[in-house]
């Protein structure tokens, strides 16, 4: 007996409601597949584009220990991109196709990487704030309903904890340093705080996909909940090392036991997402150039493999 799509969809939903995990060969609604491809490719692209703003500073790291840490970290980002591309490929899309979507502007990546890294403390801020926000997101995704995505997230979260911690340690050290170092750290904080909050996406009332994704357990918490979780754990960390949160409205609510923050500039977010952030063009251009310049290398390796098969 062949099940109809509606019956299959009911069975699929029941499976998810029972907390079961969906594996690549299981039947899934086309929209579930499409949504996952969209999210996962966006996530993978973010890791890869994210190598650029930090990669910038490897050659300028002020100590050899820091140079090694940053190299290892940026290399991890590449690895994470690769894990997620791999996981996305189980949904029947080719990595080349995903990359083409990035290069032609059809696929997005996290808006945070369209901000420039202007001083060395930005490297600390990226580790602490950007990776800190990413960990909150990814810890949630590690429990998502799609097996390969969840497994990739578990591996990534383990590695990201090092990124998060080294960033905080670096800023903490700078805050105990010279006046110039403290200014650099605060400047980085001022520029990265709001974009880090935007990483969780618009408020759920304005997030068109949220309800469906939550029903499918691709998303387990609302954008606002995750943002709140990030703020609650980050503000005391900032205070502990003497960094000011660039939000005059930020205050702790004794009743709710949560921090309350000022209005996020969603217009800026929309601008950056739609391609008009400070570095959108440079980032994309760099990725396209790497791919174009590397074509002869990839072609050569393929030609060699064909010649020497068997």
């Amino acid at each position: 007996m062949i099940a109809t799509d509606t019956e299959r969809e009911l069975e699929f939903q029941a499976k998810i409601d029972r907390g079961e995990v969906i594996e690549p060969k299981d039947w899934m609604p086309e929209r579930y597949r499409k949504q996952l491809i969209r999210m996962m490719s966006q996530h993978a692209h973010s890791e890869v584009v994210g190598m650029l703003p930090e990669g910038n500073w490897i050659t300028r790291a002020p100590s050899l220990a820091r140079k090694a840490i940053l190299l290892a970290k940026v290399q991890d980002e590449g690895g994470h991109g690769l894990y997620i591309y791999s996981a996305a490929e189980t949904l029947g899309i080719d990595r080349g196709e995903m990359i083409d979507q990035l290069h032609t502007g059809k696929a997005k990546y996290s808006s945070i990487f369209n901000y420039p890294t202007l001083n060395w403390a930005d490297i600390g801020a990226i580790g602490w704030l950007v990776d800190g926000a990413a960990i909150v997101n990814q810890t949630a995704l590690a429990k998502c309903s799609y097996g390969p995505y969840s497994r990739a997230m578990i591996r990534i979260c383990k590695e990201e904890n090092f990124h998060h911690k080294q960033g905080y340690q670096m800023l903490a050290y700078m805050m105990r340093g010279t006046k110039e170092q403290q200014e650099m750290a605060q400047d980085a904080m001022n520029r990265f705080w709001w974009p880090a909050l935007m990483m969780f996406g618009p408020s759920d009332t304005d997030s068109p996909n949220s309800a469906e994704l939550m029903r499918w357990k691709v998303k387990l918490h609302s954008n606002d909940d995750l943002r709140q979780r990030f703020i609650d754990r980050t503000v005391p960390q900032a205070e502990a090392i003497g960094l000011k949160i660039p939000d005059p409205k930020m205050k702790f609510n004794e009743t709710t036991r949560h921090y309350e923050h000022g209005e996020i500039d969603w217009q800026e977010f929309k601008n950056v997402v739609s391609g008009n952030g400070p570095c959108n063009r440079e980032r994309l251009r760099a990725r396209v150039k790497a791919d174009t310049d590397g074509k002869w290398v990839r072609d050569a390796a393929e030609a060699y493999a064909k010649k020497h098969m068997n």
């Binding site: 080719d94 990595r95 080349g96 196709e97 083409d100 290069h103 791919d291 074509k295 990839r298 072609d299």
Partner: peptide, 11 residues
């Protein structure tokens, strides 16, 4: 060899 509409080959 890939065509211009599929600019990236990924092995």
């Amino acid at each position: 060899m890939s065509e211009s509409n599929i600019p990236t080959n990924q092995w």
